[in-house]
Nucleic acid binder design. Structure first.
Length: 598
RNA sequence: GGCUUCGUAGCUCAACUGAAUAGAGCAUCUGACUACGGAUCAGAAGGUUAAAGGUUUGAAUCCUUUCGAGGUCACCA
């Protein structure tokens, strides 16, 4: 079935040819959805066409409108307001569309096809010296949802995680554990591994600051000098050197402590409902990229300073000089990223590489793609930095003064607990088994969190308000889940054994609200495509809400199960079921579970 | 300071590529009901889209300047 917009567009071109003997540029033809306050389904904006017609907006619109209605059987009537030509599409067109889409479980989703790409989405990328926090939640939810949406667009998607498991910061927690601990383990303390390690990282920082203060007081040092001279930091640096040299004892401890952290992360990922096809470790990739630096040197794209460090000069591109390799030949962040990018794009033939990374690294990724471009890699333009803004909390109430961030586990557990409290208070889940209740609390608590974060444009800094997110009214996850559960309940009460068994009669009269709903359903494939193109789950989230809101009005205005006309009743049940299907599929792409009952 | 992102109702967010009277929700106020699930629905009020200029038939959207907030400018990752 050809899209109606395309049909109208083609019609307009023919109309212009026939009316004014001109061949318009297709881009000047704008078909919009008609705004609610006007009559019509689609609107042609005629202003850009006035130069071609040489007539007034109203006259032009009327002439085109008349031609279209006379020549396109899908159109029923038209009206003109100022320079806007509103077109009314035949109800039978929408019924035919509905009959085709209803019950089609792949409606809106593309399967692999000629334009499918091999896409890699890298997200999460945690450090192993501290637990995941609120910022990681946005990262993980975005990465997971975008991967799903791209899959729904027919792309071959790989989700990967690059764990930052080495470096001075890891040594800090290791050192603190050795010096200030008593051999505690997650097993001996019952503390989650990532939290235990994180606690020692904090401990290191505390002791380190103490030493700095002492040095400044007793030796009359300034702060910068004290930071460099503190014994603790020197020990940590020694440890890093030992690690790089492969010292057995240090490597063993490193393995053990990282193991604890991974176990903790796995738990959090599972709780959050995200996963990966492959996990990379920086300890395995940090040496990659040195060859590329040599290649760049031989091509004179890079240059060497007196101390043998390697740089690139991007001042001509409006950027700065950037270090690519240290004087002692060790690699930096950029070296590694150059290496992994080349490996992924050339060895695995990735068509697109998406990095979900916070916007504080915008500059890094700008430099990364510039460097690759200068090295002559045409695929450099296939790197996409999905940059997102910080997540704040209202009034910073939960933010401690030291800037300690909100822990992911605590936040998730808190959301689930709130869902439980609210539910118990309202007595909504009486008669459910304990396991059912647990599942619903989790779905609602997490649904609230996920939906609230994903509905916001990724690039914007946002405020997460836990209380607002879990409200059962408004643009929230729980509101959508609740409406969904109500529809499911309605369908099971309808006692139709095969909901989509009967086709809707082409002669059925469509009420305005019914038509509106079908029109929103009609947009679903477009929304999926657009969300994939923009890599924006927010588009999909807001679409789901719009659909639910519209449905609630429909639900309120019409009888469904008690409708006396059997054909009408069946249609309304089918319409409800179709909407439930779409909501479920849309929300699942966002990683949000939809309880059948709640 | 250089570069960069952002600034929309009291609050949290929308507005696809420039298009009609800038939309929702929360909060506030006013109403509706023995209910196909009341965790409901309807209505009201709330805006000089930070400010000023410019381009355009048309600007929240594009350009310039100013103000304000964040990010970044490490031999950290």
């Amino acid at each position: 079935m050809q899209s109606i917009e395309q049909l109208i567009k083609d019609g307009v071109i023919k109309a212009l040819k026939s009316l004014y003997q001109i061949e318009p540029d297709a881009s000047t033809i704008q078909i919009n959805k008609t705004k609610k306050e006007f009559i019509g389904d689609f609107t042609l904006v005629v202003f850009p066409l006035l130069k071609l017609s040489g007539k007034s907006p109203e006259l032009t619109a009327n002439e085109i409108g008349k031609w279209l209605v006379d020549n396109l059987q899908e159109l029923e009537s038209y009206n003109v307001i100022k320079g806007f030509l509103n077109l009314v599409v035949n109800a039978s067109y929408f019924i035919e569309f509905f009959n085709q889409a209803a019950g089609n479980t792949t409606f809106g989703f593309a399967s692999q096809n000629a334009s499918s790409k091999k896409v890699m989405v890298e997200y999460s990328s945690p450090n192993t010296n501290k637990p995941l926090h609120l910022g990681h939640i946005r990262n993980n939810l975005l990465g997971f949802a975008v991967a799903n949406i791209l899959k729904a667009n027919g792309h071959d998607v790989k989700k990967v995680n690059l764990v930052n498991d080495r470096g001075i910061h890891i040594c800090k927690s290791m050192l603190a554990w050795k010096k200030f601990g008593n051999g505690e383990t997650p097993a001996s303390t019952g503390i989650k591994g990532d939290h235990l390690v994180g606690d020692y990282y904090v401990r290191f920082d505390k002791e380190y600051k103490k030493q700095i203060a002492e040095l400044m007081a007793s030796n009359n040092m300034n702060e910068d000098a004290a930071k460099k001279e503190a014994p603790l930091i020197k020990e940590a640096q020694d440890m890093l050197r030992l690690w790089e040299a492969g010292d057995k004892e240090v490597v063993e401890l490193w393995k053990a402590m990282n193991g604890w952290v991974y176990k903790g992360f796995d738990e959090t990922y599972k709780k959050m409902g995200v996963d990966f096809d492959r996990i990379y470790y920086e300890s395995e990739t940090y040496l990659l990229g040195k060859e590329i630096v040599q290649e760049g040197l031989s091509k004179s794209v890079f240059f060497k300073k007196e101390d043998a460090s390697v740089w690139i000069d991007l001042t001509a591109d409006g950027l700065d000089q950037k270090l690519l390799l240290r004087g002692d030949g060790t690699s930096v962040y950029m070296t590694q990223d150059l290496g992994t990018a080349v490996q992924r794009c050339e060895e695995y033939h990735i068509d697109e590489l998406i990095y979900v990374v916070g916007n504080e690294q915008n500059y890094h990724f700008q430099v990364l793609s510039k460097v690759l471009e200068k090295l002559g890699h045409t695929w450099a333009k296939n790197l996409f930095h999905l940059s997102y803004g910080m997540v704040e909390l209202p009034e910073g109430k939960m933010k401690s003064r030291e800037g300690t961030v909100v822990d992911a586990d605590d936040l998730i557990d808190g959301m689930v607990k709130t869902a439980e409290d609210m539910s118990v208070e309202l007595g909504k889940l009486e008669g459910f088994s304990d396991t059912e209740k647990e599942a619903i609390y989790k779905a609602v608590g997490l649904g609230a969190l996920k939906y609230f974060i994903l509905k916001v444009d990724p690039k914007k800094t946002m405020t997460f308000d836990p209380k607002e997110s879990i409200d059962f009214n408004g643009n929230t996850g729980p509101f959508i889940q609740y409406t969904y559960a109500r529809i499911r309940s309605l369908i099971s009460k309808s006692e139709l054994n095969n909901v989509f068994g009967d086709k809707v009669s082409m002669t059925l009269h469509l009420e305005q609200k019914e038509k509106e709903l079908i029109k929103i359903i009609y947009q679903f494939p477009e929304v999926i495509a657009e969300a994939g193109k923009d890599k924006s789950p927010a588009l999909l989230a807001n679409y789901c809400y719009e659909l639910v809101k519209e449905y609630n009005q429909f639900y309120h205005d019409f009888t469904i199960l008690k409708e006396e006309d059997a054909a009408k009743r069946t249609f309304r049940i089918q319409l409800s079921a179709m909407i439930a299907d779409i909501i479920e599929r849309g929300m699942n792409l966002l990683g949000i579970a939809m309880p059948q009952r709640m």
